[in-house]
Design a protein around this nucleic acid. Structure first.
Lengths: 345, 345
DNA sequence: GTGAAAGCGCTAACAC
DNA sequence: GTGTTAGCGCTTTCAC
């Protein structure tokens, strides 16, 4: 048998062990921060590893240990502020927890797409899965043996261990509607996202609850698709109805489109019609009029969700009580005002 | 030796082989779409795999074969439209190529942060790395034995095999400036991103080239940080200078902030001052005035970059000529107009 | 066309 | 505290 002469091949843990004059197992212990290694050996191993430019092979570790130290996320393939903010928050929380992140987008968060994405993540070997803003609850039943976190919605499919962390959308929608009602509007119209999205339903319900609590008349929901163009279309529709004085829109971008249509139709915002958006993208503080909006706690939700998920991965036995919902934050800017006085407009 | 009784443990390729009545190697061949397997056996193996709910173990495959079928991306940890669009494009291209995606963000794309991120990706076992919009060229020298693609900038560090795909920022900046000059403005001011970003430099140079080509006087660059707030600050500064009639801003969000400041200061856009943004976020078609902007070809750049990267991974021998730059796309909306007539304003 | 043996780089259980 | 022995589940020779 001829020895491998490949001088430039990457060093393995055996090389580090040899260089440090210890066994491979000791190297393994040091690399995994396990106890029962003398400080002296630990030093020697670490020095040797740096010296050789050694890099641990995660695949081998995963195969031998059964643990991957990685988390997979299923996200929506859009560059929208909400989706992107959530992903950034997830990545940071995952990295801080010492895990690697694998991402699979679904073009359209339907149950089949999501289950396919989860499947591919499972093949890749993840210790946990995050489903970011699943669109609908479905009867997809996957054999998933790792914990699954649903972010921004209740579980969208059955799995052995599911967790779920909301963004407080119901309370946020209610606060947005209450703000308009407090200003003196007799009722509030609502432009929602697509019905099949859980996020849409949640906001609709919050809006409805606020209306019901004040005995305000409920209005038919106008349905958009999150795009500014759909908000614009909704705006044209609502501008035609002279009784409209206040609108709660389920997304900032739709709200901007709506305001544009309203102004084109000669309706002033906020003098004639008040508008509240949803999300909290800071850039809309600089449009005319600056957009009043319900800020979603993307970061806090991601952090809290990953904390729960990692706990479920590392200590499957003990239940960790979820922390309370993050505070409701309504950002009042210039797109809301009291309704026009009767008999004056 | 007592057989494992764990009835619920996940099936392995040996189980599939047994169920199909073939050897493990044949299963492997079928799963990897290798030739020299009879259709009949192929069918039997596939059926058995589905029957047992078999899922391939990527870690084991990576360990045995040395290939991971995964690509790592180093991105900026921001939810901005540009970064997010690029990531969405990368994910889709990677998935279409049959690879898995691993993501590591850097809080701040400095050389140390990037090299740390690349290192962690390498440990995870990726076949290629994408560095999305690195901030600066640095003297970071990593021992990277897989191909590295720099997206939106030239190579930021040395590696064995580097590729780079631009977004045509220079040409885009030049087109934006030319548009303003064509309208009759005698010169164009520029609000840039942070100097240490490659993206900022590229745009500055395109702007400068356009000015120089017409013999237009060059103006000092105002530096922002991509945020709308920094655009607002730049707007206050520029509003104080009555000679300003046209501004090319290196990012849409800064442009929106700038316009807000201009209008607050009593300068009309576009009547008094024309503004062009950069990126192409569609929502800004719905603000007042609708923003004229240079649209970055995020998707095309990501697709082309990943095509090159995958080629470099799979056929390291042959060089693939990069396709031409994508077409320059200037979206003219309402924030630009001819300069105010002399003696009238 | 198909199968048997060996081993990828690491960690698990055990011995010392 | 430390080292030894056996695999993790797959793909790779190479024989048939």
């Amino acid at each position: 048998m001829v020895g491998r002469i490949a001088a430039s091949s990457a060093p393995r843990s055996a090389d580090v062990a040899r260089a440090a004059g210890v066994s491979r197992k000791t190297v393994s212990r040091v690399l995994n921060n396990e106890p029962y290694v003398s400080d002296e050996l630990r030093r020697r191993v670490l020095d040797a590893a740096v010296e050789l430019g050694y890099r641990l092979n995660h695949a081998a570790r995963a195969l031998a240990s059964g643990r991957n130290r990685s988390i997979g996320v299923v996200a929506l393939g859009t560059a929208g502020y909400g989706t992107a903010s959530l992903l950034v928050g997830i990545e940071k929380a995952v990295r801080d927890a010492g895990y690697a992140l694998r991402v699979v987008n679904t073009e359209d968060g339907d149950p089949e797409g999501i289950s396919g994405a989860v499947m591919s993540l499972l093949e890749q070997g993840v210790d946990g899965v995050v489903v970011s803003e699943p669109v609908v609850e479905g009867e997809v039943s996957l054999r998933v043996d790792v914990p699954v976190l649903f972010l921004g919605a209740p579980p969208a499919f059955t799995a052995a261990r599911t967790l779920s962390v909301g963004v407080g959308a119901h309370a946020l929608a209610r606060a947005a509607t209450d703000h308009l009602l407090d200003l003196g509007h007799t009722t509030v119209h609502h432009v929602a996202g697509p019905r099949r999205w859980y996020a849409s339903k949640d906001r609709i319900e919050g809006w409805r609850a606020a209306l019901a609590a004040r005995g305000a008349p409920e209005q038919p929901v106008v349905e958009g698709d999150w795009s500014p163009a759909s908000g614009y279309a909704a705006g044209r529709e609502l501008a035609a109805d002279s009784s409209v004085t206040a609108v709660f829109v389920a997304g900032d971008e739709m709200a901007v489109g709506l305001i544009h249509a309203l102004r084109e139709a000669g309706r002033r915002v906020p003098e004639d019609i008040s508008v509240v958006g949803f999300d909290g993208n800071p850039v809309f503080a600089y449009v005319t009029p600056p957009l009043t909006t319900a800020r979603q706690p993307f970061d806090a939700a991601a952090r809290e969700g990953i904390r729960l998920l990692v706990h479920a991965i590392e200590e499957p036995e003990t239940d960790l009580p979820p922390a309370g919902e993050p505070p409701v934050e309504l950002v009042v800017r210039g797109s809301t005002a009291p309704p026009p006085s009767y008999g004056v407009g």
